[in-house]
């Protein structure tokens, strides 16, 4: 009897809805009209550009348009991958993407944990408020600040000179070796406080009784961080890591474009800059599109891989 009841209620959960009646559809008229408008917008601004991918397989000429340009198969992709500059942009994009991802991840987690250990509520609030500030500044402003700080007479050189670490000021923007670290530092400076928000929220939601139990067991501050706080925020760390893996290639434009110069272009140019340079400045739309498609495909592959890893480890999945 009770079993039968259970089954029934289960069925109810699975299929609680009755079919949507014509009367209801009529009621939903306004929703349908708005949906139609929104779908038209979406098709134009998000789906129509996908048709432009055809250009990558054509010798696209603006005067011939998409319909009459000559198809050339994968020739543009071949041209792309035989271009050493393009191969270098792949390396630069991946390298900076990964370095930035790791650097911003670790600093945000460490910052969140350390901030959480601050006893004074007021002090915590003040530090946190200040830590958000750089996130709201544009890359234009941030690169301006970097130029000031790292210039020959800038504060960094001054401090290094005063501490006798160097005996003549370094021109940071002229040496390729400094570029990736500068980009990573700029990302850390800009986003640490902002990225920490979500970890702080996760730390706050850890059950306080876990800390009490750990105290009773004689755990000190470090043991509590290691055995309570870190495991508590592990799911958050995992999901954010996975979300950001798909974005690794997208993080390579603004700062590299604004900070790059002729002297460091072998390490500063990213795929997006390549697309801009060839596609827009040289008006070679086909090669620009091909490079863009390559980037999109790699991103999708990365997302799928990340999602599979998440699934295998039993973590929450993205989609």
């Amino acid at each position: 009897m009770s079993n039968k009841f259970k089954n029934k209620s289960k069925a109810n959960i699975i299929e609680p809805k009755t079919k949507i009646s014509w009367k209801e559809i009529k009621q939903q008229k306004v929703l349908l009209i708005w949906s139609a408008v929104i779908v038209v917008y979406g098709v134009i601004f998000y789906y129509l550009p996908l048709a432009g991918w055809l250009m990558a397989f054509q010798n696209y000429k603006p005067k011939d348009g998409l319909w009459h340009s000559q198809f050339i198969g994968f020739a543009k992709f071949q041209q792309l991958f035989s271009d050493i500059t393009f191969i270098r942009t792949i390396r630069n994009t991946l390298a900076m993407g990964v370095i930035n991802l790791i650097a911003t991840f670790i600093t945000a987690i460490v910052f969140a944990i350390l901030l959480n250990e601050i006893a004074s509520k007021g002090g915590k609030k003040v530090v946190q408020t200040i830590s958000y500030l750089p996130h709201f500044l544009s890359w234009i402003i941030v690169t301006g600040i970097l130029h000031d700080a790292l210039s020959g007479s800038g504060i960094i050189n001054e401090v290094l000179l005063k501490m006798n670490i160097i005996d003549q000021s370094i021109n940071f923007f002229a040496h390729p070796g400094y570029f990736w670290p500068i980009v990573a530092f700029a990302n850390v400076w800009k986003e640490t406080g902002w990225n920490a928000i979500i970890y702080l929220a996760a730390i706050t939601s850890i059950d306080p009784s876990l800390y009490e139990a750990a105290s009773i067991d004689g755990a000190g501050r470090f043991a509590k961080i290691k055995y309570v706080t870190l495991p508590g925020i592990k799911p958050t760390i995992m999901i954010l890591l996975l979300m950001n893996v798909g974005n690794v290639l997208n993080a390579g434009f603004e700062i590299q474009y604004l900070l790059g110069n002729g002297l460091v272009q072998s390490v500063s140019q990213t795929i997006d800059i390549y697309v801009l340079k060839w596609g827009i400045s040289q008006s070679d739309y086909s090669i620009g599109t091909a490079a863009g498609i390559f980037k999109s495909l790699v991103s999708i592959v990365l997302i799928v891989i990340a999602n599979q890893i998440a699934k295998r480890n039993g973590e929450e999945r993205l989609f």
């Binding site: 979406g42 550009p49 697309v275 599109t289 863009g292």
Partner: peptide, 18 residues
Amino acid sequence: FWVVTMYVNGGLIPTFLL
């Protein structure tokens, strides 16, 4: 329809031409 747009987009050049 909308979630797809988060993962796939036309890229700079097609968007520019559009």
